[in-house]
């Protein structure tokens, strides 16, 4: 399966962006905590949080991109995504992390640290995906 590709940078990672949680609370993107995602998913009827462990990070043919391989969920299903190196993922208990945190911070002003193999990222799946 070819990796999923995200070629554009969404605006909501910009520092100061207002994010609405599932309970209606508004928070700035840089203030989000692990619990915010977990609690939002708990009240969602169709989405659930999965733990996605970074298993491998490699360069893409295009140097602007990286290919990240995750082990998703309790069955550790292998999923690869190709993303811009500055694309941030939220790591459990740690916060925003990307392959190139300097670029993420430069582009979005978003505090960000280096995404590493072994990091456990927050991801979503459908509750009824079986």
């Amino acid at each position: 399966t070819p990796p999923a590709t995200s070629s554009s940078l969404p605006p909501y990672f910009m520092k100061g962006s207002i994010i609405q949680l599932a309970n209606g609370e508004l928070k700035k993107v840089e203030d989000l905590k692990t619990e915010d995602f977990i609690q939002s998913a708990e009240v969602s009827s169709d989405l659930k949080i999965d733990s996605s462990t970074v298993e491998r990070i490699e360069g893409s043919q295009n140097p602007s991109f990286a290919i990240i391989q995750f082990a998703v969920g309790e069955h550790r299903a292998q999923v690869s995504v190709e993303v811009l190196v500055e694309y941030p993922f939220f790591v459990f208990g740690q916060g925003w992390s990307s392959c190139c945190p300097e670029q993420t911070t430069q582009l979005f002003n978003l505090p960000c640290i280096k995404l590493s193999v072994g990091d456990v990222c927050i991801s979503l799946t459908l509750k009824n995906l079986k």
Binding site: P11, I19, Q20, G73, V79, I122, S123, L124, L126
Partner: peptide, 25 residues
């Protein structure tokens, strides 16, 4: 008078990647 400008509000799940393993069964 200054008109208040609407600030975009994004939904929380937009920020989380949807990593669904392909279901073959």
């Amino acid at each position: 008078n200054v008109e208040p400008r609407s600030v975009p509000v994004f939904h929380w799940h937009s920020l989380v990647p949807f990593l669904a393993p392909s279901q073959s069964e």
